[in-house]
Nucleic acid binder design. Structure first.
Length: 387
DNA sequence: TCTGGGGTCCTAGGACCC
DNA sequence: TCTGGGGTCCTAGGACCC
């Protein structure tokens, strides 16, 4: 039941990539942000020079600047990070076929059957760190443990550039006084409810009555109890069974709250066009469309519907999304709009009417131009001046 | 000039079918 | 003069992650 699991966690990934790409940023505090200079923007990633001053991912810009006035703001270049992430993933496959990308900057490897060939999991961990540094000039932190839950926790213990091993015989003692929220999967809500039960640490969670946990959390109670003991049976996927994404979406916090239907229409249309373009690029189409809305009060809405015919056409996605707009919200100020496409299928066999086929060829030409010259070089007339 | 944007997973309840 | 139970699909929405 104990495996040799490695968690590879890139250190301040976006910020580090930007520092390597621009020597002027080396050694300086860097904020990678979505839209520099715009209202309502947050820090997507902070370099360690800024993190040491207390800046965290997700922090709003005024707060982050107050902590670190010297920071250099760099706009996020997501496709660059995705590209490097994919190349790291390729390199990791040399160590084990059982390697999984948990996010753009995190990977799990199951070395149970393969570590011996390389001299054991600790040697593998060192080799991986060296390889990532040599090939990409990037540091990462690695955790070695009997399962994914503990490997992820271990990787976070000595950041940046860390290497932490958790042996099975040390688990109980290591978790005894650990706050429950130190484990991935226990966020603010669960932590709060657990506190009302008198459970603050993993040790207390492990000893708590499973009956009471399931009474409060349902089936999640069993999982929480296991987490308190540091148990986790989730397998690491194989690189060969790479799955198609489950959803593709775009949301945007608007420069200022919007309540008139005309502007709203335009903003939702922009998100729908973005989603359509990405679906077509991936050769996917969606059965389910979700309209995502956030009121200025931060109340969220996400009406969704499944259609029998999948689509990847921006206009059609917009029509479907717009049809979901809740009556109750008409005229109420909204701060965020988004469109998400789910229930995805490959688009090869999309049934198309002759009109659709003409439209499809037009879209393909448009996509080609946009893919070559940048997104939204060509876009519907109604979006002019919006983006 | 408070609180981003990309996702995954899970639960619950109702409709519907057998 | 009485309405079970299992399976699946659909939708809403929350929690959590980086």
């Amino acid at each position: 039941v104990n495996r040799d699991i490695l968690h590879v966690d890139m250190d301040a990934f976006f910020a580090q990539v930007e520092q390597r790409a621009n020597p002027a940023l080396e050694g300086r505090p860097v904020f990678v942000v979505g839209r520099p200079g715009k209202a309502r923007t947050v820090v997507a990633a902070a370099s360690y020079e800024a993190k040491r001053l207390g800046v965290k991912s997700g922090m709003n810009l005024p707060e982050a600047k107050a902590l670190c006035p010297a920071a250099v703001l760099v706009p996020a270049d997501t496709s660059k990070y995705v590209d490097i992430s994919e190349r790291i993933f390729q390199e990791l496959q040399a160590f084990s076929p059982q390697v999984e990308a948990a996010s753009v900057d995190e990977f799990y490897l199951d070395m149970t059957l393969t570590a011996a060939r390389w001299g054991g999991p600790l040697v593998v961990a060192r080799d991986i760190k060296k390889k990532v540094l040599d090939l990409f000039r990037l540091t990462c932190s690695v955790g070695v443990a009997p399962n994914k839950l503990l490997a992820k926790w271990a990787a976070g213990r000595n950041k940046p550039d860390g290497l932490t091993v958790v042996r099975p015989e040390d688990v109980a003692e290591a978790l005894e006084r650990l706050p429950v929220s130190a484990l991935a999967g226990i966020g603010p809500e669960l932590r709060g409810t657990l506190r009302t039960l008198g459970v603050l640490t993993c040790g207390e969670l492990a000893r708590h009555s499973v009956g009471e946990l399931t009474a409060h959390f349902g089936v999640l109670g069993y999982k929480l109890s296991a987490m308190g003991r540091g148990e986790d049976h989730a397998p690491v996927a194989f690189a060969s069974q790479e799955e198609r994404p489950k959803s593709v979406g775009h949301t945007q916090t608007l420069p200022r709250d919007v309540k008139d239907a005309e502007s709203l229409h335009t903003w939702v249309f922009l998100q729908a066009e973005r989603v359509g373009a990405r679906l077509r690029k991936k050769r996917l189409a969606a059965h389910t469309i979700t309209l995502i809305l956030r009121e200025s009060s931060f109340v969220n809405w996400s009406p969704q519907k499944r259609w029998r015919l999948p689509t990847h056409d921006g206009r059609e996605i917009f029509q479907r999304a717009w049809s979901l707009f809740p009556e109750k919200l008409r005229g109420r100020p909204l701060r965020l709009v988004g469109v998400s496409a789910g229930d995805l299928v490959e688009d090869r066999q999309l049934p198309l009417s002759p009109d659709d086929q003409k439209q499809r060829r037009l879209e393909e030409v448009k996509d080609k131009i946009n893919n070559t010259f940048g997104s939204f070089t060509l876009l519907p007339a109604r979006l002019k001046g919006v983006k």
